[in-house]
Computed example of a mutant assay.
Amino acid sequence: MEREVLIVGYDGATLLDVAGPVDVFDGAGQVCGGYRVRLAGLGGGFAVTAGLRMRAEDLREVTGPVDTLVVVGGQGFTRAAADAELLAHLTRLAATARRVASVCTGALVLAAAGLLEGCRATTHWAYCAELAAHPGVEVVPDAIFVQDGRTATSAGVSAGIDLALALVEQDHGAALARLLARWLVVFLQRPGGQSQFSVRSRVPPVREAGLRAVLDAVVEDPTGPWTVERMARRAAMSTRHFARVFPRRVGLSPARYVERVRVEAAATALESGDDGLDVVARNCGFGTAETLRRAFSRVLGVTPGGYRHRFRTTGAA
């Protein structure tokens, strides 16, 4: 049975958000005839990255039903989420679709259409807080993709490939999904989550200059003895006040923030060098390789050795 996949874009969409799922579903269709991929936008074609323009059907003329409705992300998502006509057509098509999915900030467009209410969902790490502001959406900030019933959302940009592979696996089994992953030279199930991306950049903006100074200082010197007392002194706060304010502003306890910064430093060392785990652990503030292993598993969901094997740069000695 051929399943119809409708991928919806808009001006300002990211090219890879479109191309990743298209290549996965179209590749699966070529192997087993299981999918027909269509591209649509309000009024027809739409502009994507670097001024390129995608040829597409006019969304107004798509009558459905479609099997899988996919909304992509991109810098134009804010305008798309405010476009009442676009949202109305998404709601219309979603009503009869077997499943509804999004790539990256496409989740915010789905949320604006009310299609994520009561659902667990994710999006690009930089926009998780914005997604959480929509009522009834439970955001899973560290996930590469989240499936909740007939709704599926993915993290930033390339995560649309991960999600599409997972949907193909559900429809046609792991063998086909694995074949497509090998052909695209990607992981069938990539290790870790969005926590592997910059800790400091994912912290919400904080007003207090003292707190900002502490956050930056830990990043600059992850091996330092960052006790709550020392951090409080750096922030020019009492220890008690600092311990109360830090989690409210940052979203993490001081200890968890320090741990994540150190994991990030260790990840960089593992990607670019060949030092043993004991050396990496000492150089990044963990002390022992075992402490490093526990922190990596807790934060990234992968062992240090597994991380190095998958992400080591080709320029490493």
Rank of each mutant, 00 (worst) to 15 (best):
L6G: 13
V8T: 11
G12K: 09
A13S: 15
T14R: 05
A19P: 02
D23W: 00
F25K: 01
G29S: 05
A40K: 06
V48A: 00
G51V: 06
L52K: 03
E61A: 13
G74R: 02
G74K: 11
A84M: 00
L86V: 02
L87R: 11
L90P: 02
T91R: 13
L93F: 10
T96E: 09
L108K: 11
A113T: 14
L115T: 04
E117Q: 01
T123D: 10
A126C: 07
V139Y: 11
P141D: 07
A143R: 05
Q147C: 10
G149N: 06
L167A: 10
G173V: 04
R178P: 01
R178S: 07
W183Q: 14
L184A: 04
V199K: 00
R202T: 02
P205A: 15
E208G: 15
G210W: 04
L211I: 15
T239L: 07
H241Y: 06
R248F: 10
P254G: 10
R256I: 01
R256P: 00
R262E: 00
V263G: 07
A281N: 08
F286C: 09
T291H: 12
T291S: 14
T291M: 05
R294A: 15
S297L: 15
P304W: 06
G305W: 07
T313A: 15
G315N: 13
A317W: 14
